[in-house]
């Protein structure tokens, strides 16, 4: 057995390395955020929210891209939320212990971590090829398909936290099961489920890969959901890779907007789940 001083030295070295690893992790977070602010903040002017994406070499904003992103996210979440909550309800409440339910949970978790570009390929095959052109609908569908497993999973987790006594109490009062669910259980798990929806919004907001070949991009203001639509992530990608200074500046501005939005959503979701937990 090694001497005590040797063991102590090993201990100090190992623990310092652990501390250093934490420093590295925090350093990268700070480095990324600082970069975003330094490069992005100068681009944040009223213009960026009011003007459309410019042609190369001239000044403009990101209004059409912001609108496109918001529109597709809203549609995706409106469709995915009820389906996700109901699916989560089945898996948490009705299929307890059944083999089929376990398989469905497993598949949902696979879908949750599946590469988003694969989801994009799938939506391209079923929604872009048959109609012959890219569209905002296809973009929204791919985002919805990414949000669905997130909402499904959090609903399962949150319903699992609701004490059984509540279900039994409702049943003892003579409430049918659907009424127990909608009037008692959903209310008890409400803030948790809402957290899940917010996290899904945060996840979907930054998604780029599936939009590349579903929503594509559009240089102009468009509200026609059956046509290609501009959206922040794809515009950032395109502008950042371009050689034009104006475009790169806008890309950084867009990146700052997106990251700020996502961090706010994440923090809100956390606060909400804290409120839910302390109730």
């Amino acid at each position: 057995m090694a001497s005590y001083s040797r063991r102590r030295a090993t201990n100090i070295v190992a623990l310092s390395l652990a501390g250093f690893a934490t420093f590295i992790g925090l350093f990268f977070l700070a480095a990324i955020l600082v970069t975003l602010i330094v490069y992005g903040a100068p681009a944040i002017t009223p213009k960026i929210f009011l003007q459309n994406t410019p042609p190369p070499g001239s000044d403009g904003g990101l209004a059409n891209a912001i609108f496109g992103s918001v529109a597709m996210t809203v549609i995706a979440i409106i469709v995915a939320t009820p389906i996700g909550i109901l699916a989560g309800t089945y898996l948490a409440e009705y299929s307890r212990g059944s083999k089929l339910g376990e398989a469905a949970k497993f598949i949902n978790d696979i879908l949750l971590s599946a590469p988003s570009i694969i989801i994009g390929l799938f939506i391209y095959t079923v929604m872009v090829v048959p109609f012959g052109h890219f569209s905002a609908w296809a973009g929204a569908a791919s985002l919805g398909l990414i949000a669905l497993p997130v909402i499904n999973r959090t609903t399962q987790d949150m319903l699992g936290l609701v004490p059984n006594a509540l279900r039994e109490a409702a049943a003892a009062l003579g409430a049918p099961r659907w009424k127990t669910m909608t009037h008692v259980i959903y209310r008890a798990a409400g803030s948790g489920i809402l957290t899940g929806v917010l996290l899904a919004v945060a996840r979907v907001t930054g998604e780029t890969a599936p939009l590349l070949f579903t929503a594509l991009n559009n240089q102009f203001w468009s509200t026609d959901l059956s046509r290609p639509i501009a959206n922040l992530p794809v515009v950032i990608f395109q502008f950042a890779m371009s050689p034009y200074n104006d475009w790169q500046r806008l890309a950084w501005g867009g990146a700052l907007i997106i990251t700020a939005a996502i961090l706010v959503l994440n923090v809100t979701a956390r606060l909400l789940s804290n409120i839910g937990a302390s109730k």
């Binding site: 990324i32 990608f237 997106i258 990251t259 996502i262 961090l263």
Partner: peptide
């Protein structure tokens, strides 16, 4: 600290790309 590390997961991949590239 735990939350800060988890925030790294919230940053979208395109931002990592932008940062990595520039």
């Amino acid at each position: 600290i735990g939350i800060a590390i988890e925030l790294l997961a919230g940053i979208p991949s395109i931002i990592y790309g932008l940062w990595g590239f520039f």
